[in-house]
Design a protein around this nucleic acid. Structure first.
Length: 288
DNA sequence: AGCCTGCCCTGCGAGC
DNA sequence: TGCTCGCAGGGCAGGC
C-alpha cells in the first residue's frame, strides 16, 4: 500500500525524530526482511548521525554522517512507529502502536538528538520491505535508483519526459506507469486513479500516449498524488499511531476497488480487469 | 532489450 | 465453528 504519498507522509512523521539525531543503538529481531540486512547493519548505523531524511519514489533515504545512506522500503505492510521520551508538543501522538504486534517488530532504532530521544520501531508482517546501506557518493548509481524514472511533483517529470519514456512501448499504459523506470513512486492504486483523471484507458498501448495524452497524464499523476498527500496527511499526520496506511484518501477513490459501482462522473459501472497479474479498475465511458 | 510470468510473505475474507 | 483457498501488492529473477 505505501506508495509515494504514504511514504512521504511517513517521511514527514519520522523527520523530527531522526533528522539531526544519532543512532544510539540499533537492534534487529532477525537477519533478514525481504532480503538479508546488510553486513554488520547495526554496527554500521550505531553512532552515525542522520543529516537528512529524504524520499525517492517509494524509498526513504537517511543520509548519514558516515558517508553512507540508509535506504528503507516499506514493501506492502511496513510501518514505522515513533515513541519519544520527551514531553512532545503533540501529546498522544506517540503511544507505542508497535506493541500491538510485537511478533513483527523487526528493527528498532534508538535515536538521540537535540529534540530528545526516540525509539523508532519498524514493523512489517509480510516482510516485503527491506533496508540497505550504500555509499552516499554513488547513491544515484546504486541498484535501487540507477534505473528509476523521474520524480513526480518535481521538474524532473513533465509531459516531454513522460512522452519520451513511452515511445515505442507496446505494453498497456497501465503496466508502463506501474514501471518505476517510467515514473517513480506510483503503485496500483494511484496508477488507476491517475488514468481515470486523465481519461486514458488502462488498456491503451503505451506508445499511443505520447503527445497530448501524455501531457494530461502527467498533470493527472501530479494532481492525484497531491490530493492523496493532503488527505493522507490529515489522518496520518501523527503516522506514529496510524492504523491505516491510506489515510482519508481511500474514501475518495474514483475507481480503485469500486468495481460494479457507479462512476461519479458519468454513472457508468466501474469495470475491473487483470493486467500483469494485478487488478485494474476503470470507467469504460470516461477513459478512452 | 522489451515484455511477461511467477515468486516472495502473511493476514484476511469468502466459501464450503 | 474451522478449514482451505485465493487475493492483495512492490520488486526482482528468469524465461522467451
Amino acid at each position: 500500500m505505501p506508495e509515494l504519498p504514504e511514504v512521504e507522509t511517513v517521511r514527514r512523521g519520522l523527520a523530527p525524530a531522526m533528522e539531526n539525531a544519532g543512532f544510539e543503538t540499533v537492534t534487529t529481531a532477525r537477519p533478514d526482511l525481504r532480503f538479508p540486512l546488510p553486513a554488520r547493519f547495526c554496527e554500521r548505523l550505531a553512532g552515525a548521525h542522520v543529516e537528512k531524511l529524504s524520499r525517492r519514489g517509494k524509498y526513504l533515504t537517511a543520509h548519514l554522517s558516515t558517508a553512507e545512506t540508509l535506504i528503507m522500503h516499506l514493501g506492502m505492510s511496513g510501518r514505522f512507529t515513533v515513541e519519544t521520551k520527551t514531553e512532545g508538543e503533540r501529546p498522544g501522538a506517540f503511544h507505542y502502536a508497535g506493541a500491538c504486534d510485537p511478533a513483527h517488530d523487526h528493527v528498532v532504532f534508538r535515536m538521540a538528538g537535540a529534540a530528545g530521544r526516540a525509539r523508532i520501531v519498524y514493523n512489517d508482517p509480510r516482510r516485503f520491505g527491506f533496508m540497505d546501506l550504500v555509499e552516499t557518493a554513488s547513491l544515484d548509481q546504486c541498484r535501487h535508483f540507477a534505473k528509476m524514472g523521474p520524480e513526480p511533483l518535481s521538474p524532473a517529470l513533465n509531459a516531454a519526459v513522460l512522452s519520451e519514456r513511452l515511445i515505442g512501448r507496446n505494453t498497456p499504459i497501465k503496466a508502463a506507469l506501474l514501471d518505476q523506470a517510467v515514473v517513480a513512486g506510483l503503485g496500483n492504486i494511484y496508477v488507476c486513479e491517475a488514468l481515470f483523471r486523465a481519461g486514458v484507458s488502462p488498456r491503451r498501448t503505451a506508445r499511443t500516449v505520447p503527445g497530448v495524452r501524455a501531457a494530461r497524464q502527467c498533470d493527472a499523476v501530479n494532481a492525484v498524488l497531491t490530493d492523496a498527500m493532503e488527505a493522507g496527511g490529515s489522518s496520518l499526520r501523527d503516522f506514529a499511531s496510524a492504523q491505516g496506511a491510506l489515510g482519508y484518501f481511500q474514501h475518495r477513490f474514483a475507481v480503485y476497488d469500486r468495481a460494479g459501482e457507479a462512476c461519479h462522473v458519468c454513472g457508468n459501472e466501474i469495470s475491473r480487469l487483470v493486467q500483469s497479474g494485478r487488478s485494474t479498475f476503470y470507467c469504460g465511458r470516461c477513459q478512452r
